[in-house]
Structure formats: structure tokens, C-alpha cells
């Protein structure tokens, strides 16, 4: 319980960055999702429940503040956390692999958002995918590593990120 308490302000900070700061500072639409990075890092370092909670509530809050479709980010983050969990469970140790796992998990989240957008009639824009989505995804994945290191300094939970 004590562990989750310090995750709450961290998650709120991530939502705050995603909803309030990054939309104004992003360059050419490139904008990493810190809430997702945090959820993935929590999954890799602490317990999957932490990652799921951050993904669910963080995603919902982000949607509430700055996304047109309520629940889409939360669903995408949950998918990413589930995939990250699948990787983490199989790999015994993977300090370097965490970025790769995070990239695949983020890609899955983006894929869900992308498919949903197409389903509701959005136009397929390959250039946007290459110029904004993929760079954002790379940044998200890279952000997972320092977050994991930060979590690791506080937690002794999951043995994956050692």
C-alpha cells in the first residue's frame, strides 16, 4: 500500500505533463506520453497491478482533459501494460531489453488508437504516422529506461529490471 502511495503523485505528474504542458511544447506534433511510459516502467519494476492502475486512471484522466474519445487512451495504455507484462514475465533480466519491450508495447497502444481512428472514419495519413507517431513512440520507449532506474532505486519488487 505504501508503495502505491508514492506512485499516485508520480502518475498525476505524468498526466499533468501529458495534458497541460506537452501540448504546448510539442514540436511538429511529436509528443511522448509520459503516463504510458510511467505505466510501462511500473510494470517492469514494481507489480503489474501498479502499471494497470496507472494506465487505467492516468489514461482516463488524460482523455478527460485533452482527448476527444473518453477511454481510448486508457484502453491503449492497458493493452501496452498487458504486453509489457507478457514480456517481463518471460524475460528473467532485461535492463537493456526494457526499451525494446516498451517500444513494442507502445506500438501496440498506438496501433489500437490507430485502428480505432480508422474505424470511426479518420483518414489514413502515412506521413503523420512517420513524422509524429513513430518519433513519439521512440521517445516514450526511451523515457521508460530512466523511469525504471528511478523506480528501482525505491523498490525491490519485480526482479526484471536489475
Amino acid at each position: 500500500m505504501k508503495r502505491r502511495l508514492w506512485l499516485i503523485p508520480a502518475a498525476l505528474l505524468a498526466v499533468f505533463l501529458d495534458a497541460f504542458i506537452l501540448p504546448f511544447l510539442s514540436q511538429n506534433g511529436i509528443r511522448p506520453l509520459f503516463t504510458l511510459s510511467l505505466a510501462l516502467a511500473a510494470t517492469a519494476v514494481t507489480k503489474v497491478q501498479d502499471g494497470l492502475l496507472i494506465a487505467f486512471f492516468g489514461g482516463l484522466l488524460t482523455d478527460l482533459f485533452c482527448n476527444p474519445y473518453l477511454g481510448l487512451s486508457a484502453a491503449a495504455y492497458l493493452v501496452a501494460v498487458a504486453i509489457m507484462y507478457g514480456f517481463v514475465r518471460k524475460a528473467e533480466k532485461g535492463r537493456a531489453l526494457v526499451i525494446l519491450f516498451a517500444a513494442v508495447a507502445s506500438l501496440a497502444a498506438e496501433a489500437l488508437i490507430f485502428i480505432f481512428s480508422l474505424a470511426i472514419g479518420a483518414r489514413f495519413d502515412a506521413m503523420r504516422l512517420l513524422k509524429t507517431t513513430l518519433p513519439s513512440l521512440v521517445l516514450e520507449s526511451l523515457a521508460v529506461f530512466p523511469l525504471c532506474a528511478l523506480f528501482r532505486s525505491r523498490e525491490k519488487g519485480n526482479s526484471f529490471f536489475k
Partner: peptide, 21 residues
Amino acid sequence: RPMWIALIAIVLLIVLAAFTA
């Protein structure tokens, strides 16, 4: 169990997103 809950949550959230869309 958390994964099952997550899966159900994902489905519900997508439905919610579709509804708001």
C-alpha cells in the same frame, strides 16, 4: 486475475470511446 480485469476494462473502455465518438 489482473489481466482478466484489464482485458474487460479494455473492452469497456473501447466501447466507451466509441460511444463518445
